[in-house]
Design a protein around this nucleic acid. Sequence first.
DNA 1: TTTAGGG
DNA 2: CCCTAAA
Length: 580
Amino acid sequence: MMLEKRFQEPKHGILMGAQEDNSMISDKEDKLTYKCVRVDGEGSFVAASEDNVLEVEHLLAVPDDEKILMDDILCFESKDSELLIRDDVPCSDDCYQLNTDFGALDCNIMQDERQEPKFDFLDSILQGLNEDSFHDTPGFSSECADYLLGTGNGNLYTGELSACFSLKDVGATGMLDSSEAVVSIPSQYDTVLDKMTIGELHEAFQKAFGQETSVKDKQWLKRHVLFGLQNCMELENVSSLLDNGPSSHENEDGLLCTSGSQVLLEGKDMNDILKSNYSEGETTGFQISNLVDKENVVLTPKRQRKPTRRYIEESSDVSCRHSSGRPDTPVNSSMDNVLQPRSQNRLIHQRNLATARVIGKEDIVGRSATDTRKPRTGRGRPRKRFSSLVGHDSDESKEYELLSVVPKINRVLESPQYESQDEEVSDDSILVRRSGKATRRKHHRLWNLSEVMKLIEGVSRFGVGRWTDIKRMLFAASAHRTSVDLKDKWRNLLRASCLQRQSKKEMEQRKKHASYPIPQSVLRRVRELANIYPYPRDRKSKLAQTAATAASNLDSAAPPTRTNAAISRSGRVVHRKNFV
DNA sequence: TTTAGGG
DNA sequence: CCCTAAA
């Protein structure tokens, strides 16, 4: 089997150099092999779909632009980071091999003391390498093989993801994060996990990721749960989360981790463990970003746009809105007579009144104040979303019944609605704010960790801006996430990741309002990707940075971010609502 | 239709 | 998340 051969022949890694021999990639037999090996969650072999095959091709064929990026990154790295270069490996072309070895093929390298501290746990999980690589180190090839075959996730994306990550990130972290602390999981958790039954592991997994898994592989479960735990341990306020118990959590995600940990850490003193092991990661340097920006990123001029109509309207006097502003949108709803509707035209959004009953008055008010939709008068045909919204209305009452017992979010998490892979529920979700006394609801759906991870994976594969591709490939099952949502979320993540560098005080302040803190490892990932695929908006400032840094290589220690105004104070891209 | 960007 | 302009 070709796969076997690969593992024994690191020279032909998962990712190949641009000028490498491509014969294996284009080899029919190769594709055939992949086509046969797709494994579903149960571990049984199933025929791979066309999509999967395509994915595999993606996996094998690094997009050209990516090659260029990686080429530069890796070679750059080779100059400055001798540690990562083994003596017998020259450079240049072999950089690929080197990193491929490091990332995906030769786990044993990890045992090298020099490497271990730099190894990012997140990456290890993403790559399907578990902590065993550090400790007992079983036969690695079976480990990797089984992962690459998809036993782990039931799909092959992750394989590619890991490949991409390993290439870029080994380069990035290896070079950059000398000061970056990596949270490690105390080894006693291994034992705890080992003692757990498959069922318990399933439960832990479900709580950690909000999804069920049918995987029966204990090792696989173990390392995934450990990953959840690790994210949990990175939360600065993790101990308070633990102390307060579920009812105090603001959302499912905050809870997720905690629940997972509670399951895992029964009888242990979590706080002590956390305190002794947690340290906040600080990323240094923008070198890669600079390099990439300089050489590979074609700067596109920010496209000009005239002020939107809405902007003009909203800038005008508020009192004018109703009288003269919109003669063509009569106020229909009785609610609207009491509450000022939003100024924009909106889509009709039928509300299920039965829904309202279980929510409670304040919620009804809250929703209609901000959310009552009115017919669009200026548009010929309804938008795509319209139908999908209506389509889900029937589910809503059930959904709200569940969500109305917010204090017991646990139930929600355990409810069947959350188990499916796509997490399809309805178009709405509830956000409970601890800070506010009245539980207020946004009709937004919170992003959970697994979604964030998918987004990150998507960006790592397609780059920034290919939102439709990402949506199609990774969020096909989640109808509620549009490509625009992905874009917005990425923007938010970027902000969040940059804000990490700011003072702790600011962070704390923000956290009170933030739904949940995003794990450091994830933010780190975002930062790294952001450096590789600069967000259009940030390009200019980053380039300026580059110039500045190049001009004076003195203050490389100075945090580069704060210099530009691109990062807003708000920290999140959210719509600020004006309450009457 | 999709993407970028402002709100 | 929503909306609009631009491509």
